[in-house]
Each structure stands twice: as structure tokens, then as C-alpha cells.
């Protein structure tokens, strides 16, 4: 059925809240208020305050308590209102959630989900707009899921909730209202499987989240000019479907990586390194990255639009390879 990205995320949580009494939600303003972006609207009425828990503004606690409750067998889905706020509770993700299993010799599981909205484009400026998905990929023990469509959001979130590892689930604000066809009821997508959003033969564009939509639009324009781009969405950064990326590059011989994160130390660098190490012979042109510049995110719409990677920049990067 047709659902928006936000509705698909809510539907996934509803399916799991109904299926498993151990699942609960906790976060700031997720109950009465329905979430800062309305994603959890109606869930408090449907499931009650035991399962849908409004917390004070206490990010350390929100994530830290989920480490404890999940180690004791519950299935918390916690929300940090903006990806930027991860800086406030970095220890709880990096030193606790990520490491408990390993430090304890595999004798504890932290089966929790951390949901966080990412992305610029709504004039929210430097502390409410970042895409920091690369940051936590540097900490082994965490899984990073970053869907680009309503159906992917639903299928991957249900898989994330059922996963015994700590999973970070990145939702792009620009897509919350985006509609799409979404399977009803129980629907899962395996974590770690890329999806080719557009088949092509001339160049591979590896991209995720909102940039998938921009890259698809760019690919249509490129097609009109005779360049047939393949758009590959890894959907999860950790684990990364390396094989799918290498296979696509083997077919096209060219790679452009597009992400909204800043360029330096963005996850695109990791993908470029993997392809250089393991797929160098497939390449007949240098790898290109399209990313945000290495600056904080500006407020003025004129500046913000200049900051966000655009269709034009994607097209320009692709054309430079021909």
C-alpha cells in the first residue's frame, strides 16, 4: 500500500510492538507530541505509556539505559531527536553499546535500535542538520542502516529491531513525507544487502539515503545525454555489501560516490579505498566523490542549497569521467 517514509517507519514499529511484548520505545517527545517529526504519532494511544516512554532531555541516559535494558532481555527502540545530538551521548554508543558483547567475551547481547534523523535542507543550521553516518562506522560492534525509500525503511527497521546487535537507524528528514509502495504486515529486508535502484552500464553511482533520490533524478538527465548510470544503494553501511559494489564497478568500469556527509572522512572514502584495493583493475577512470564541503552547515537557504550536494554536481562529476 502507499505510505510515506515516516508512516513506513511507524508501521514497522507498530508491527514489532504488536508482535513482541519486549519491544518498547523511549525518547524525547515521542509520546504525547508524537515525535519532533511526527514519526511516532498515535503510538502512545495505541500502546500506552509503558511501551511508549517519554524521557526527559537526557541523551546519556536514553542510550545508556537501553544498553542495560537490552542486556537484560528487552528490545528498546530509542530515539535521539537529531543525529547531531549523538555527540552528547557518544560514550554510551561507542564505549558501551558497541563494546559490551566483545568485552564480555560474547556473553551479552545489546539488541537495541537507535533511531536518528539526519540531513540538511530545512534551515535547521549547524547543530540540527548533519549527516554523520560515517562517524559511527568507525566503531566495530555497531550496525548502521540508512534507508532511502519507504519500503526499505519498513523492511530494514523490522530487521533491525529483531537483530541482536546495536543498530543505528538513520532517517532523512527530507524524505519523511515522501510516498512509496510498502508491503503490508510483516516485511523484512536482510541487513547487509545492497539494492540496485537503477540499472545501468556506463557508470556506477554508489549512494544512500536522500542522495539516492537525487542520484536517480541525475541519472535520468544523464540518460538523455547518452550516459546510462547504475545507482547502487548499499542500504546498510555496516555491514557493507562489498560484493555488490565490486560487481557493479566490474560491469561499468567507473565509480562515483555520492553522500551528504562532508567529504573528509565521509564513508565514501572507505568505499573508494575498498574499490581501489579490491577492484582497481575494473576501473578505467579515477573514482569521484560528490559530498558536502568541509564546513558546518549554514543557515541561510541560499547558503544551505549551495552546501547540499545537488543533481548538477552529481551530473558534473559523472560527466568528468567520460
Amino acid at each position: 500500500m502507499q505510505m510515506t517514509y515516516a508512516e513506513a517507519i511507524r508501521d514497522a514499529m507498530r508491527v514489532e510492538l504488536k508482535r513482541d511484548p519486549k519491544v518498547y520505545l523511549a525518547g524525547e517527545d515521542i509520546g504525547v507530541f508524537g515525535g519532533c517529526f511526527g514519526v511516532t504519532a498515535g503510538l502512545l494511544d495505541e500502546f500506552g505509556p509503558k511501551r511508549i516512554v517519554d524521557t526527559p532531555i537526557s541523551e546519556n541516559f536514553i542510550v545508556g539505559h537501553a544498553v542495560g535494558s537490552s542486556a537484560c532481555g528487552l528490545r528498546p527502540i530509542v530515539e535521539i531527536m537529531f543525529n547531531d545530538f549523538i555527540a552528547v551521548c557518544f560514550d554510551e554508543m561507542c564505549n558501551q553499546a558497541a563494546k559490551v558483547r566483545y568485552m564480555f567475551g560474547g556473553k551479552a547481547d545489546v539488541g537495541m535500535v537507535l533511531r536518528m534523523p539526519i540531513g540538511a535542507g530545512i534551515g535547521a543550521a549547524a547543530q540540527h542538520s548533519q549527516s554523520l553516518e560515517g562517524l559511527l562506522t568507525h566503531i566495530p560492534g555497531l550496525i548502521s542502516v540508512i534507508p532511502s525509500t519507504p519500503a526499505d525503511a519498513k523492511g530494514l527497521l523490522i530487521s533491525a529491531i529483531r537483530d541482536d546487535n546495536p543498530v543505528i537507524f538513520y532517517e532523512h528528514k527530507q524524505m519523511y513525507g515522501m510516498p512509496g509502495e510498502v508491503p503490508e504486515g510483516d516485511y523484512t529486508i536482510p541487513i547487509g544487502k545492497a539494492d540496485i535502484k537503477r540499472e545501468g552500464s556506463d557508470v556506477t553511482i554508489v549512494t544512500w539515503s536522500w542522495m539516492v533520490q537525487k542520484s536517480l533524478a541525475a541519472a535520468e538527465k544523464l540518460a538523455a545525454e547518452g550516459i546510462n548510470a547504475e545507482v547502487l544503494d548499499p542500504r546498510t553501511l555496516i555491514p557493507l555489501d562489498k560484493e555488490a559494489i565490486l560487481k557493479s564497478v566490474a560491469k561499468t568500469g567507473k565509480l562515483v560516490i555520492v553522500h551528504e556527509e562532508v567529504k573528509t572522512s565521509g564513508f565514501g572514502g572507505e568505499i573508494a579505498a575498498i574499490v581501489s584495493e579490491e577492484g582497481f583493475d575494473y576501473l578505467d577512470a579515477p573514482i569521484k566523490r560528490v559530498a558536502a564541503p568541509d564546513t558546518p552547515i549554514p543557515f541561510s537557504p541560499a547558503l544551505e542549497q549551495a552546501y547540499i550536494p545537488s543533481e548538477e554536481k552529481i551530473i558534473e562529476a559523472v560527466k568528468a569521467l567520460f
Binding site: G68, C72, Q96
Partner: peptide
Amino acid sequence: LGANGIVGAGMPIATGAAFAC
């Protein structure tokens, strides 16, 4: 639920365990 190398990090975890109880 573990010793902890980060000073003060055990408190939210213990409180989360209490939440589960």
C-alpha cells in the same frame, strides 16, 4: 553487568536494568 572502564557509565546501564526489572 560488568565492571566499566568509563567513570560513571554504569549508572544509566544499572538504571536500564532496573527499568527491565
